[in-house]
Design a protein around this nucleic acid. Structure first.
Lengths: 101, 101
DNA sequence: GTGACAGTTCGATGGTTGTCGAACTATTTG
DNA sequence: CAAATAGTTCGACAACCATCGAACTGTCAC
């Protein structure tokens, strides 16, 4: 029984979102999720040279901070940015974070 | 010889800005600086019950992350949000962080 | 059922960070 | 100069965090 609860957006605190984003690995993951499509956690293109367990830790951190949701599909998991909800709660934040420089 | 260098905005990294903002104390300080006016570090209204040395640590963290500058005036210091430069480098970010909810 | 595959969880480890008090530096005022 | 004021720096401490490997859970394929 894997269930991977994301917090209600009403309970999500800005400071926790910022803390989750304030790590280079997680910021890069969020960038890859920018288009809003769910991405398999096994994605080859994360561009990160980390072990499975470390990746799992970062996925959990992002989910618990309210940034992502996990979609279970058999034995594979996908991760998706909660873009609409985040935009509603923190207008402009994700756009600013994802903007190129 | 107190001089309190802020980094060039060209060298400021988004991830470091986000990490600096991902702390409740510093986020609150930044909120108090939202109007752009320099505020004395001794401000009574920070709303924080912390020692001088702890406040000094947070002021330093904000400055080194590129969020603020320090203005020395005799034996008193003021701190100011680098609003224009931040808006130029990270459009919309500060506005999103400072927005009420 | 057996094995392969996708992920999580656990324990350990080393590095970072928030906090404090004490000592220090620098500036103003008497 | 001496004392008071504003702030930094240092050392210590505990809590947290990123990382890893190993063990575990759950699902699919044969």
């Amino acid at each position: 029984m894997g269930d991977y609860p994301s917090p209600d957006m009403a309970e999500v605190e800005l400071v926790d979102v910022l803390k989750a984003l304030g790590d280079p690995v997680r910021l890069q993951i969020v960038h890859k999720l920018a288009d809003g499509e769910p991405k398999p956690k096994t994605l080859d293109g994360w561009g990160l040279d980390l072990t499975k367990s470390t990746m799992s830790h970062h996925f959990r951190t992002l989910r618990e901070a309210g940034l992502t949701r996990t979609i279970v599909h058999g034995r594979t998991h996908a991760i998706q940015l909660r873009r609409d909800e985040l935009d509603d709660k923190f207008p402009g934040l994700i756009a600013a974070v994802l903007a190129e420089r």
